[in-house]
Write a protein that binds this DNA or RNA. Structure first.
Length: 225
DNA sequence: CTCCCGATAT
DNA sequence: ATATCAGGAG
C-alpha cells in the first residue's frame, strides 16, 4: 500500500533535521555566488540571475555597476542600452524592463533604498518572492521565507520534502518543516547541493551525503546506470 | 497556461 | 541537438 500524504509528511518531519545538519556541514560557507557590494547591486544581480548561471551574471555586473551606481541611475537608464549591456544573461528585454520598473519604484517610494520587507519588495514590480527572499536573506539577514528556485524545487522534491509543483506550495511546505531562523541557510545550502551534487541531469548519488536520507536515491541511481 | 532568451554542458 | 541555468509577468 502506497504511503499516504500524512505519512510522507511525518517522514519528512523526521528527516528534515538531519538533512539540514548535513547540508550545513557540507556547505559551511553558503554565501551567495553573485558578486555585489550593496543591497541594490544584489537586487539587480538577482534579477539578472533568472534562468541564468551566476557565473554568467558576474561577467556582466562589473561594467554594469560601474556605469549605474544608484537606483536613480537605473531608473533613468536608456532601455535599449541596458538591454544590450545585460544581453548575455538571457531574457534581456524582460530583465531590462524589470530593472527599470523596480528602480523607478525604489526612487519614488523608498528614497532609492532597497526595502526590508517581502510586501514592499514584491510591490516594486519585476521582483517576485524568490528574488525578495534572496535579497532579504543575503543582504539583511532576514528570514522572510524559503527561496524556491529551480534547484530548491528539484532537490526538495527528490528528498521527499514536498509533493508540491508550484513554487508557492513548495515554499509553504518547506517553511512548515523548518524553523524560521534556518529558512535562508537551508535555501542557500540546498542550492549549492543542487549545483554540486544533485544535478538536474545526472545526480551524483554515489557521492551524495544525503543518500541515506533520500527516498529517491535508489531510483535515481538506477536511472543513471 | 505561455512567453521571454543567451550561454554552456552533455 | 537538447536540457538546463539562484523567475516573473500577462
Amino acid at each position: 500500500m502506497a504511503p499516504s500524504k500524512k505519512q510522507k509528511n511525518s517522514d519528512a518531519v523526521r528527516r528534515i533535521g538531519k538533512i539540514l545538519a548535513q547540508l550545513k556541514e557540507d556547505y559551511p560557507d553558503s554565501s551567495i555566488a553573485l558578486d555585489y557590494s550593496n543591497p541594490l547591486q544584489l537586487l539587480i544581480a538577482t534579477i539578472l540571475s533568472a534562468q541564468c548561471t551566476d557565473v554568467r551574471v558576474n561577467k556582466v555586473t562589473p561594467d554594469l555597476f560601474k556605469k549605474y551606481k544608484s537606483a536613480r541611475d537605473f531608473a533613468n537608464a536608456n532601455q535599449a542600452d541596458l538591454e544590450q549591456e545585460i544581453r548575455s544573461t538571457g531574457f534581456f528585454r524582460n530583465k531590462a524592463k524589470s530593472i527599470i520598473t523596480c528602480c523607478r519604484a525604489l526612487v519614488e517610494r523608498h528614497n532609492g533604498q532597497v526595502p526590508k520587507s517581502m510586501e514592499e519588495l514584491v510591490e516594486l514590480g519585476g521582483v517576485g518572492r524568490k528574488t525578495a527572499n534572496c535579497v532579504l536573506g543575503e543582504a539583511y539577514g532576514i528570514n522572510s521565507g524559503v527561496i524556491v528556485d529551480t534547484h530548491v524545487r528539484r532537490v526538495s522534491q527528490r528528498l521527499g520534502l514536498t509533493e508540491g509543483e508550484d513554487p508557492e506550495k513548495i515554499e509553504s511546505d518547506l517553511m512548515q518543516l523548518l524553523p524560521q531562523d534556518e529558512w535562508y541557510r537551508f535555501s542557500s545550502t540546498i542550492i549549492l547541493h543542487g549545483r554540486n551534487v544533485c544535478d538536474a541531469r545526472k545526480p551524483d548519488c554515489q557521492n551524495c551525503s544525503l543518500f541515506s536520507l533520500c527516498p529517491s536515491g535508489e531510483e535515481l541511481m538506477k536511472a543513471r546506470a
